[in-house]
């Protein structure tokens, strides 16, 4: 039994799922769900649709070159059944999958590495540029026009309650 990949989004199509389209030149198009089939019928290009694997690969969102990709492939030749080989393969699948998941995680961590520093930089810049909008708390008490009237009342009540508890 073969688990084919969806033509549009490259996810695995399990038996009993999805739909298959055979064009009049005998080319087969498999789709994992109606979403992908509809997108195909609309003649969308998977390379330009952001949620497909093809897009993510092309734009460096996912890991592209890795030795773990060499294991899963379409093998168009018959293999003689061997119990030992099958057992070893089943064992190896788990190991390889773990390695692959770890590498993918590392790839994403690497990709997101600069984000925190960038956010920090942007925040600092915003703070510097618009510090004049921040008022000191003592100013707010002096000028009631700067705050909403209801909000002031609530704040006062809360502070009173806090004192009572203490």
């Amino acid at each position: 039994m073969r688990l084919e990949k969806c033509w549009f989004c490259s996810s695995t199509v399990y038996p009993g799922h999805g739909i298959q389209f055979v064009r009049n030149d005998a080319k087969i198009f498999r789709f994992c769900r109606s979403k992908c089939h509809k997108n195909f019928k609309m003649k969308r290009n998977p390379r330009k649709v952001k949620w497909t694997k093809a897009y993510r690969r092309l734009h460096g969102k996912d890991m592209t070159q890795d030795s773990t990709f060499e294991f899963e492939r379409k093998r168009n030749r018959p293999e003689r059944y061997d119990r030992n080989v099958t057992e070893n393969t089943l064992k190896a699948i788990k190991k390889i999958d773990k390695i692959r998941v770890d590498r993918e995680e590392r790839h994403i961590a690497k990709r997101m590495k600069g984000n925190k520093a960038k956010e920090q930089r942007e925040a600092t810049k915003e703070l510097e540029q618009s510090i004049h909008m921040v008022k000191a708390p003592s100013v707010l008490f002096k000028e009631p026009s700067l705050t909403l009237p209801t909000k002031v009342k609530v704040l006062q009540k809360q502070s009173e309650e806090n004192r009572m508890e203490e």
Binding site: K5, F8, C9, S10, P46, K53, A54, R57, E72, K74
Partner: peptide
């Protein structure tokens, strides 16, 4: 292309 993008060789 779809197969390669899915992580197949």
């Amino acid at each position: 292309d779809a197969d390669l993008a899915a992580g197949m060789g």
